[in-house]
Design a protein around this nucleic acid. Structure first.
Lengths: 257, 257
DNA sequence: AAGTGGTCTAGACCACTAT
DNA sequence: TAGTGGTCTAGACCACTTT
């Protein structure tokens, strides 16, 4: 039997301000989320039914439904047809980590610099050929870059690019801007999608030297494999960043307070 | 000037099946997402207006709006009031990584085992006191566990728990089930929310021994700080897992094909 | 049978942008 | 001024669960 909290506490909660710039559905979603965060509604508790919420807050069913959908999407509640809507308990597995910090690093071009360390033609070995879906021995472009923030080395980037004389990817890809819009999502792009994966590594002597890091030191390795609009791989590479300067943080459950 | 693709290609695309178990809004969202994935709609392109979509697919404005909202939430398109809706380019910073793999590990109790290595009372030093918001010298419970999958060590877990004689957290927290529902989100919970952060580390000799790992080896360290319903910290600890057995993967942009 | 969430309609009004 | 997205209404019908 799910605990059904007295409606007193919810009734005392704020009502919807129709003059606010904030839409009614967002206000309602926030009111309910606050109730969860404040402990008025606890995991397992049943929320008021949609018709009840319509009456209490003076909005139409569609508006209530939209607020509910938001809370479901955010993982705050679960809706079960025919039973009701219930507050979800905290689930650590529901946590999501974002690369926004990494994105922010590159949002300010004035503080970002790219040092080109090396570009050369490399014939694909078995490993490269498999990743880029080309034949062994085919030519690829190998690029090594050092990405600096305010003059401090932040990331060491290596990648193998498909070599296609008909398509001069090289010039645009080698520029700073190419990397910037890869993170920020602005400007032109020749990439349709990409697979990313993160693993933990120990810096090699070369990597530590470039990143001016003491040894031994742990680091994040962000591997990427990008595809063009024909679903052909065009870039395979890694960003390597010091773990002591890059952290992924997130929160599960409602905010405190 | 945004490219406005000929409507031919979109018109040829499948229509909405009203007898399907899949809701109309979801079908429409999928049709449009497929158009992006197939390259019919490319980054920067403008989508048909909402009224156009209403006519073309024979649905009401609210249904179109809901489909659009889904695509906006998924980061596939951006909607600009008064201008139109446009396909977003790939942004690596938009990537999100989930702990679902970790969650799945604990979803099957039959294959999961917890070996309790140590429990003892520890008086808080400055570091512990600050994290748990208690006074230095106050008692805490220190627990070390080894989490195994099919008999193979998967995670090494250490945590400091608030010691409160009035609340017997200890028993329930020490059980296997306590960890399980922490991941799966089922059952009772005394936790309201938690802060998580991931960093890369190098296994210590002790850690490597427990995880039966060669040395040196890089690992992920998942730090957690959980709060109760009074917003007081009650648990601070770390899950340490071998990087070669745990990877975080994700995708940016629409699917291939 | 009553109550719940899930979907959908056919409009309405507003704010904003481009021409 | 015309077109766009953003919000919202006041219902309707359906599938499902509980009593």
């Amino acid at each position: 039997m799910a605990r059904r909290p007295t409606n007193r506490a919810l009734e005392r909660s704020s009502s919807i301000d129709r003059d606010s710039f904030e839409p009614a559905y967002a206000q309602l979603a926030n009111i309910l989320r606050q109730s969860v965060a404040a402990g008025v509604l606890r995991p397992g508790d049943q929320l008021p039914s949609e018709s009840q919420l319509c009456q209490r807050y003076g909005v139409s069913p569609m508006t209530v439904r939209r607020a509910m959908n938001i809370l479901v999407d955010q993982g705050v509640v679960t809706a079960e047809q025919g039973r009701g809507t219930f507050v979800k308990p905290v689930a650590m597995g529901a946590a999501t980590f974002q690369l926004t910090e990494l994105q922010n690093l590159f949002s300010d071009p004035a503080h970002t610099a790219v040092r080109l360390l090396e570009t050369r033609i490399v014939t694909a070995d078995e490993r490269i050929a498999r990743k880029l879906a080309i034949a062994i021995g085919q030519r690829t472009i190998y690029i090594r870059r050092l990405l600096c923030m305010d003059g401090v080395p932040a990331f060491y980037h290596r990648e193998y690019l498909i070599y296609d004389p008909k398509r001069p990817i090289v010039e645009s890809e080698m520029e700073v801007t190419a990397l910037q819009h890869l993170f920020s999502g602005s400007g032109e792009t020749i990439l349709k999608c990409g697979d990313l994966s993160i693993e933990a590594t120990i810096l090699t002597a070369e990597e530590a030297g470039l990143l001016q890091a003491p040894q031994p030191l742990a680091a994040f390795c962000l591997e990427h494999l990008f595809y063009d609009f024909d679903d052909k791989p065009i870039s395979w590479g890694w960003f390597i960043g010091r773990s002591d300067r890059l952290r992924f943080t997130t929160r599960v459950g409602p905010a405190r307070g």
